[in-house]
């Protein structure tokens, strides 16, 4: 059974997998960071924000020395699950780490007690 966790991400509770909500693609183990199952691209801010003025230290587009837009896509349908505006080289955030056992219990799936939860 699948549970929708974000706008475009599901968890298959039986298979314990992150899945794309749009096309069903199975990304990676639900015990890991879903981002590790994605295709990733870092974009220059001026791809998304038009500077409006040239040759100025401050414009309407963020400065690429200060941030890049790191985008995480479904490898099958290309939907963007998430993006992060990170300084270049900053580690990727592990944003969702669920207690899978409790989630399974909530949805009526039997859980063996020996499996550990979140440490």
């Amino acid at each position: 059974m699948k549970v929708r966790i974000t706008e475009s991400l599901d968890i298959d509770l039986v298979k314990e997998l992150w899945c794309c909500n749009r096309c069903g693609y199975e990304l990676i183990s639900a015990r890991m960071n879903y981002k590790e199952g994605c295709l990733v691209r870092a974009r220059d801010p001026s791809d998304i924000f038009q500077p409006l003025v040239k040759n100025q230290p401050y414009t309407f587009a963020p400065d690429p020395n200060w941030c890049r837009i790191v985008e995480f896509y479904c490898p099958q349908c290309g939907v963007m699950f998430e993006n992060e505006c990170l300084p270049p080289g900053h580690p990727i955030t592990h944003d969702i780490e669920l207690d899978l056992e409790k989630l399974k219990i909530k949805h009526g799936i039997h859980v063996e007690r020996s499996k550990g939860g979140i440490t």
């Binding site: 990170l86 944003d95 207690d99």
Partner: peptide, 13 residues
Amino acid sequence: WNDGIYRAVVFTD
């Protein structure tokens, strides 16, 4: 709500 750990980072300039 679902038990778990939820992380986020933001940056100021």
